[in-house]
Design a protein around this nucleic acid. Sequence first.
DNA 1: GAAATATGAATGAACG
DNA 2: CGTTCATTCATATTTC
Lengths: 166, 166
Amino acid sequence: TIAHKMTGRQRWTPTPLQLQNLERLFDQGIGTPSKQKIKDITDELSQHGQIAEHNVYNWFQNRRARSKRKQHGGVGSSSHKNGEGEVETETETLNEKRKRPESLVGLPDGNDNNNGIGTTATTTSPRPEDLCFQSPEMSSDLHFLGVLSNPSISGCDHVEDYDISG
Amino acid sequence: TIAHKMTGRQRWTPTPLQLQNLERLFDQGIGTPSKQKIKDITDELSQHGQIAEHNVYNWFQNRRARSKRKQHGGVGSSSHKNGEGEVETETETLNEKRKRPESLVGLPDGNDNNNGIGTTATTTSPRPEDLCFQSPEMSSDLHFLGVLSNPSISGCDHVEDYDISG
DNA sequence: GAAATATGAATGAACG
DNA sequence: CGTTCATTCATATTTC
């Protein structure tokens, strides 16, 4: 089972050195790393193995996101929590940090869009929407949209959340 | 203690058809579609599944933002020497965008909208199982990064731009 | 070797 | 509009 390094790598795997460096940086209190920092970090970590800026970026993003929502217990390590509610329950504990515009858009959950590919036993949820494929000429449906040409941003109203007025 | 459980999915997932249409429209060279256009597009795409105007709007915004990210200098700016760097040559082997349910196999094979996993290929980082933890000397490499501080708390530069291959 | 888990990557949604 | 967060997917890694 050790020799499963075949078919090359699709996903970047941080080397122990890189990982330790990243953790160290994260511990220093950099919740939102900047591009410049990303570059510096990437450059340094390159010495310990192949790495790209987006890898570093993703790592920090994941790390931060992970701190909040633990999938399950086990990480009892000390961390510099920013004061945000540290969750300990895997079930829910959804902080209203980000609003859910259910009332704004009213997306009906009745129409379940596919998502759970079914990596595990729970298989998938078949939807007629996805099954209704058509000919490859998908342009035919929207060909009329093509003639609309480049739209000007008429009415430069400040829309913070896409004001669908009018 | 918050027992909020939003049943269903709040995040819109474009169906393959919707995605193809959207990409096609984007390719036609549009920046930010007008409200009117958004409506037209939404109306057309509704035939392929649930969709709202704000979904279309967000999609275009994201698409454009993502597009620009990639065009900024390559992420692999940190060209580091690595003799064993073996590129996969072509992105044909494992170039699967978003694995969709097998039910969609009926879709045309001509998926020209491949974005490439990115990751700068190569990916030659060996994973020595034996090498788990080493001496904490790694700090020496990135000690300079410690002084970089967090721009958020420092309030220095606001150049938050990186390269995400996505 | 399959299941469970850990985690990197993709993307829709929100904020400023 | 650019950036960042939150959620989910895909795959590497560990465990059984």
